[in-house]
Design a protein around this nucleic acid. Structure first.
Lengths: 119, 119
DNA sequence: GGGTATGCCGAATAAATTTTCTGTATACGA
DNA sequence: TCGTATACAGAAAATTTATTCGGCATACCC
């Protein structure tokens, strides 16, 4: 993946948690997998705005971090599935809180930035 | 600040919330200001690992987003203070949840990455 | 004048992340 | 043989974010 040159201080619990989910699509992936199993192609369909390569990389990192699990079936054509792990499930309340916050305060920022806009 | 070329879809509530706090130090700044007013120099002291220039920029963005407020006193030498706003306070439960999660699962990732390490 | 302290900010550089493009592999069916 | 579908991954380019460097302004004190 990416070799960091500047280490991140993961002894700060806030930054540790952040580091696991603050890539562009990780929180969305966890949200998609919260209560269903999806194949890679289905995840791509669910998040069409994401570049497929990035989705693949972030899925791999989520697996490495133990937040989701991957099952590979020895079939042809190849088939695999992603599921959220018990550890990943413990992040869902945080995802939910962010979803709810965004929903509640949406109008404020639509007014400020437009529905689809720059940060 | 930074002019984005690729717009972010803020109509997704999850990504909207994320976009407000996923810069390197924003969540830490909100945590520092959660129950006290701090001067810029005090924020720098509280987060010594952050490059001062970055902290300044992220403080400015947090003000623009209405999550913190800045008071400038017309004195010399100049003095100013940052406070969290009521809107910013509504994010504190999310910060808290991430703090608690990181605290609870710290050992898992210390084993994996070391206390201070790459993502 | 020279040093301190405060708080900003422009610009260049460096690093990290995302995006795009391309290529691999396998077997099925037309 | 050719096209389809599935899934994965290397490499370069583009973009975004972070870092470093240097500078500005003001008034105080020595």
């Amino acid at each position: 993946m990416y070799e960091r040159k500047i280490p991140v201080d993961l002894s700060c619990p806030l930054r540790l948690t952040m580091s696991l989910i603050d890539s562009k699509w990780k929180s969305c992936i966890l949200d998609e997998l919260r209560c269903r199993t999806l194949r890679p192609s289905e995840i791509h369909k669910a998040l069409p705005e994401a570049a497929p390569r990035v989705l693949d990389m972030q899925l791999k990192e989520l697996v490495e971090d133990g937040l989701i699990a991957k099952t590979i079936y020895p079939e042809l054509p190849p088939r695999s599935e992603y599921t959220i792990t018990p550890l990943g499930m413990t992040l869902i309340p945080i995802i939910d809180a962010m979803l709810a916050w965004g929903e509640q305060n949406k109008e404020l920022f639509v007014r400020k930035y437009g529905a689809i806009s720059a940060q």
